[in-house]
């Protein structure tokens, strides 16, 4: 299958990345060459193969549902580009 410019703009929207109109053509070309390469997989019949979901022979550990650190609000807020008191600040969402 081939990806057209509209499709790529849609995917970019889903990924929350604005794409420069001037770059759409080269991006389309690059992605199509990558997908052509990826689609070699269609040569293989995998109807009877189980998908591999983990390469470890162990299931994920569970732990007690309890606080293991805490009291690190300042550390968590430290790198925020915009904050107010104890909160992250984002552009207005609700009118």
């Amino acid at each position: 299958m081939s990806l057209d410019k509209e499709k790529i703009k849609h995917v970019a929207k889903l990924a929350r990345i604005s794409v420069d109109e001037a770059k759409v053509d080269s991006l389309t070309k690059d992605l199509n060459s990558i997908f052509k390469f990826i689609e070699q997989l269609n040569e293989l019949n995998t109807d009877k193969v189980e998908p591999l979901t983990s390469i470890l022979n162990q299931s994920l550990r569970s732990r007690k549902d309890e606080i293991s650190d805490g009291k690190i609000r300042e550390k968590i807020l430290k790198n925020s580009p915009k904050k107010s008191e104890e909160f992250f600040v984002v552009p207005k969402v609700v009118e």
Partner: peptide, 14 residues
């Protein structure tokens, strides 16, 4: 078509 297919081929590679 893509992700599930890749997970299956990953099984074959392993």
């Amino acid at each position: 078509a893509y992700y599930l297919k890749a997970q299956k081929v990953r099984q074959l590679i392993k």
